[in-house]
């Protein structure tokens, strides 16, 4: 019984920090349409550009005016952090300029992140 408890407890600890990026990038491209009011892959607009986002420290893209909250967040963007942030940006990071309710469906988020990973690795898009 103790072993079971330990196992369940370990899985619970692993869960939040582990995000399986097995999303459907094709469907994610459609989800990304929602982002296009403020973002693009190649250029910063109302929101920062997405090329280079994976592994980038939040709030550090040159030439983009981030909120203080984002600058001080200490976030390094990866699948897990993006998943958390995209679910509810304002709740995850109060003070962020990304005033958007979030992508509430977990599969949509996984698909969106899969698309972002694929697109930002494409040298024809992000050189």
């Amino acid at each position: 019984m103790r072993l079971l408890v330990l196992l369940v407890g370990s899985l619970a600890m692993i869960g939040p920090s582990c995000f399986a990026a097995d999303g459907d990038a094709g469907h994610g491209a459609g989800i990304y349409q929602r982002c296009l009011a403020c973002h693009s892959l190649q250029h910063s607009r109302s929101g920062p550009r997405h090329c280079g986002v994976f592994g980038r420290k939040a709030g550090t893209l040159p030439g983009y005016a981030y909120s203080q909250a984002m600058k001080k967040s200490g976030i390094i963007w990866d699948e897990t952090n993006l998943n958390r942030f995209l679910e509810n940006p304002l709740k995850t990071l109060p003070g962020t300029k990304m005033a958007y309710a979030g992508v509430k469906d977990a599969k949509d988020r996984a698909d969106l992140i899969a698309y972002l990973k694929q697109a930002t690795r494409d040298p024809a898009i992000c050189d």
Binding site: Q33, R34, C35, L36, A37, A99
Partner: peptide, 17 residues
Amino acid sequence: AELEKGAVSAYLGAVPI
């Protein structure tokens, strides 16, 4: 059209919050 569609999504994301 792409910008307008994006704007619709942005307002959809703004209205609930």
